[in-house]
Design a protein around this nucleic acid. Structure first.
Length: 580
DNA sequence: GTTGTGGGCCAC
DNA sequence: AAACGTGGCCCACAAC
């Protein structure tokens, strides 16, 4: 049965699908949207699939037309599908209908790229349409009940949401072209399906191990709490029995500051750096307590709550264009910030019969610094496959590469990373445990050895101050606000120095995401985590050698697409646990 | 009760 | 006041 009104065609009969396919095949681009009964494809269903061509908008009632396999071919190839936040729709189509939408144009990602990492802007379809089309679609039906009998208002809303994407894409495409953001937008659009599938796959937590670890860390935490409390006197006039409850909240910086004052120690704050300078065992005990409390509260007690009852796995959310530099952010939970200690990482495992393949770029940000600065010593070190930290240490301390000690290499590593982030003599010397003059001296020597690195960093900061805009190697833009306070403090200069490095690394990583999924297609293998320069794939055990080589190849090619002079190196480890 | 903010700390 | 870039999250605390 087909019901046609001025605005849309409601499809409730599978026999109508061939006509929909024909119309889509003839369109150059299709506005596409879904209305769902839940925000998660694990907890709900897609009720409507709206497909808008310039001539006609189809609304397919998926409760009436359960099988949309006739649409599979045209949705997986053919005309570009325009979505707003395509990850969301992709996941419902993939999980519930086995369809991987491609190619896509995402109006939300496009708007975010055009804003150059501006914080706080709204990126709902209504806000973006208002900005680029001077009209604002009514979103009042967005959160309405899509599981029952649908009203005319709902259907009109649904049709409009898909149809508006056609003119919106045209405007955004013009803007992307004008701002030379087409290349990076293609990288983003190609990464969507990888990120969407990675979330769908989720990651397996070995709950037995995790609970065991929780128990031991809790015991350690309780011991640390007792040791810490013992430093502080009982309040006057409290009877022994009344003192049984917690008299001092050890998690409260305020109460901790008061408690330290009571034993004659004035704290400016209770940060690690401050406490390390305090020569009293209470400071040591507080740091120990904090470390364990953090692990217990943030990770051990929290992560099991995220295991989905249906899949038994943790499905984090990756936010594709939240971070101004282009990196992925991750939330609910953030599986990019699991403590690096083996006792934590070994709890993230592969299913029985499967294994993890863990691949990471070796020193990718330093390679990018070599590329963008074109410093001869830097570039040639990477071209020769030398260890850059050792080289830095050798030249700074005036010894040969073989003579470099562990400590010297470790100092050089801190300097290499620190200067990339705009670090100064004061904080560097503090980290290295030396005085400021020595820090200054080390930085000067460093820049003497790598003069083009210094020139690059200064020029980049200057350009950002002048133009208020910078680009990564793939052309991603960051716009810097004109904030005199930040300029004064040098914060903007440091952000500027870091942006092309961190941002180009993100360019490479996003390209790699797309390449990895493409190269693993057809194999029983899937991405399960992405941590900036590291990718974790879960695959059948017997596929590990093949998957390893495919990941290495995909990541290398992604790097080579962005870096012209400097080679990239990828390290691959196969393990049933997320350890190296 | 919910919401917002700041201190503090985990990752790369 | 701090002086290291990018995030997310826990907790305390205050306001509503």
């Amino acid at each position: 049965m087909e019901e046609k009104t001025a605005n849309y065609t409601l499809v409730t009969d599978p026999k109508e699908l061939p006509r929909v396919v024909n119309a889509l095949e003839e369109a150059g681009a299709v506005g596409a949207d879904t209305e769902t009964t839940s925000l998660s494809p694990r907890d709900g269903e897609a009720r409507l699939l709206q497909l808008a061509t310039p001539d006609e908008t189809f609304i397919i009632d998926l409760f009436e037309v359960r099988d949309i396999s006739p649409l599979k071919e045209v949705l997986e190839g053919g005309p570009v599908k325009i979505f707003h936040n395509s990850k969301f729709d992709f996941q419902f189509l993939k999980e519930l209908h086995g369809i991987s939408a491609a190619p896509v144009f995402d109006t939300m990602l496009a708007a975010q790229l055009l804003d150059g990492g501006r914080q706080g802007a709204a990126y709902g379809l209504d806000a973006v349409a208002e900005r680029y089309l001077d009209e604002s679609p009514d979103k009042s039906e967005q959160r309405s009940d899509w599981s029952g009998k649908l009203t005319g208002r709902q259907l009109e809303y649904a049709a409009r949401d898909a149809a508006v994407l056609l003119p919106l894409r045209e405007k955004l495409l013009e803007a992307l072209e004008a701002e030379e953001l087409v290349r990076v937008s293609k990288i983003e659009f190609a990464a969507v399906s990888s990120i969407a599938e990675m979330e769908l796959a989720g990651v397996k937590l070995d709950v037995g191990r995790w609970k065991e670890l929780e128990k031991t860390v809790r015991e350690r935490r309780d011991e640390a709490a007792l040791a810490l409390e013992a430093h502080f006197p009982e309040p006057e006039g409290v009877l022994p029995l009344e003192g049984l409850g917690p008299r001092l909240n050890l998690n409260s910086p305020q109460q901790i500051t008061d408690a330290f004052r009571s034993i004659g120690i004035e704290l400016a704050d209770t940060k690690v750096w401050t406490l390390l300078k305090v020569d009293h065992p209470a400071a040591r005990d507080l740091l120990r307590y904090r470390e364990l409390q953090k692990k217990l509260g943030t990770y051990l007690e929290t992560y099991p709550k995220f295991i989905h009852p249906k899949t038994g796995r943790i499905h984090a959310s990756f936010l594709q264009c939240r971070v101004p530099t282009g990196r992925l952010a991750c939330a609910s939970p953030n599986i990019q910030q699991i403590p690096h200690e083996e006792e934590f990482r070994r709890c993230f495992v592969a299913e029985n019969g499967y294994t993890l393949v863990i691949a990471d770029y070796s020193q990718i940000e330093l390679r990018i610094l070599a590329e963008v600065s074109d410093d001869p010593a830097f570039v040639s070190a990477f071209q020769k496959g030398e260890d850059l930290h050792s080289l830095t240490a050798a030249t700074m301390y005036g010894v040969s590469m073989e003579e470099v000690t562990k400590d010297q290499r470790s100092d050089a590593k801190r300097i290499n990373f620190g200067l990339m982030y705009g670090r100064g003599a004061k904080s560097l010397s503090a980290q290295l445990g030396t005085d400021e003059a020595r820090g200054r001296q080390l930085i000067d020597e460093y820049f003497n050895n790598y003069p083009k690195v210094q020139r690059y960093l200064q020029r980049t900061a200057n350009r950002a101050t002048r133009d208020r805009t910078l680009r990564t190697l793939a052309g991603r833009v960051r716009k810097f606000s004109n904030d005199p306070v930040e300029d004064d403090r040098g914060a903007m200069r440091r952000e500027a120095m870091n942006y092309p490095i961190q941002g180009s690394s993100a360019d490479i990583a996003k390209l790699a995401l797309a390449y990895i999924s493409r190269d693993l297609r057809g194999l029983d293998a899937r991405l399960v985590n992405s941590i900036h320069d590291e990718f974790v794939v879960e695959c059948r055990e017997e596929l590990a050698p093949e998957v390893s080589e495919k990941m290495r190849g995909a990541m290398t090619r992604a790097g080579e697409r962005i870096l012209e002079k400097v080679p990239v190196e990828v390290e691959v480890v196969v393990s049933r646990e997320w350890t190296k």
